[in-house]
Design a protein around this nucleic acid. Structure first.
Lengths: 224, 224
DNA sequence: TGGGCAAATTTGTGATCACATTATCGAAGG
DNA sequence: CCTTCGATAATGTGATCACAAATTTGCCCA
């Protein structure tokens, strides 16, 4: 069993695989709220838009359907996952179950470098709010949470959370219209503070409240 | 917007789509433990085995990779997800977080018909243990849990749990060798009893203990 | 003007082919 | 006997084509 060869293989930089790049493009588009919930998509349309053949799009779409981000009806109709009140409540519940837990697990592997990185991201997030840049806000909010969560070294739970985020991502679009308030940042700051103090309970609570704030804002838009 | 037409569309029975059937076949094979962890697979090989072209297998495999059941290395190597102690612990944690919750949500929609169905499945599970039929045991165990979970009408959380099951499914294979003990059934019976009594706390605890029993049995095999 | 019916277009699906890359296997060299 | 290298086989990936089914369009009739 030549372990050296195996290591060499792991060192190979990820080759540019079309369907993988396509997936990433769609992933960020969805998770930052660029796609309207329920919006009808076509494989050929996306392929033309991304400048590739339908083949890579097919595989990327299949992945996103598996994660619940897109929906493929039996009538051969592809669309962004629509939202209902039931789905909304369920996503909320799943987030509260999973995200405080993975945050607590991230605290174990916490470091000064991580805290600095989170602080920098949150600064950029605050800038995005000041400038009224909803796209950057969505991106930085995602970056903050997933930078923290990735530090947990829990890829399985992280994948579950990714699935959930992909499913409410499109609703971010509904909320990005008004970015007047900045109280979301407070929870992020509390989370950073909790990380510094190694206070697990405080971190869990900060994440829980951040989820609550965010979902309530979305929910307000959702119900009108 | 003709709602009647839309309703008609929903009534259309699911057409037989090759990649969907392929997915289901692989799904059950994985979740009942027919695939060895880390086993190398090939798209062409599965296609020949299933009697179709590589195309449907590609799409089914892409879905299973997205859910973490299969792993596609950047060296173009497809395999069943391997297991490590870290993954095992994480799966355990995810199960304890999600499954008692969805079980509690199922209790709200509980009915006598559901309880009868669960009882019947558990009877068949007991038979499988007596006869020493590990395949049927795995299948009935899966049926018991997902019949209960599906009653929750929480498709999003259910999908998360499916993802987790797909990831520890292959390890069932390691445990199916010895089926002497039958104490697993006790937790199922306690769960049914809790459903009858509408006792949410008892149901959560029964599910939690069932997970613990099952994972400890797998863990014993895993560590040797 | 409004509603259905049929032609025409579009779409997802499946199959096949070409290609770059990887794994596999056998022979040569130490 | 073990390692290393080169040739061969096998694999995932991407593109293209064909097809059935769905959607859309446009026309006609009431």
């Amino acid at each position: 069993m030549p372990a050296s060869k195996s290591n060499k293989r792991d060192e190979i930089p990820d080759r540019k695989i079309a369907h993988e790049e396509t997936y990433k493009t769609l992933y960020y588009s969805i998770i930052t709220g660029h796609f309207e919930p329920g919006k009808v998509l076509t494989i050929r349309g996306l392929a033309e838009q991304l400048g590739c053949s339908p083949m890579p799009v097919r595989e990327a779409v299949r992945r996103l359907v598996a994660l619940g981000a897109l929906k493929m009806r039996n009538t051969r109709r592809l669309s962004v996952a629509p939202m209902t009140e039931e789905r909304f409540e369920e996503i909320w519940a799943a987030r509260v179950l999973l995200e405080p837990e993975i945050a607590a697990r991230a605290m174990v592997h916490s470091s000064k470098a991580l805290i600095r990185k989170l602080q920098r991201i949150d600064d950029e997030l605050a800038q995005a709010i000041e400038r009224g840049d909803p796209d950057k806000y969505s991106l930085k909010n995602w970056e903050f949470h997933f930078t923290l969560y990735r530090a947990s070294a829990c890829p399985i739970i992280l994948r579950l959370i990714e699935s959930v985020w992909l499913q409410f991502g499109p609703f971010m679009r509904l909320v990005t219209g008004r970015l007047g308030t900045s109280y979301v940042v407070d929870q992020h700051q509390k989370a950073i503070e909790a990380l510094k103090n190694k206070d697990e309970a405080a971190l869990r609570e900060a994440i829980r409240l951040d989820i609550q704030d965010g979902m309530e804002r979305i929910g307000m838009d959702f119900r009108n």
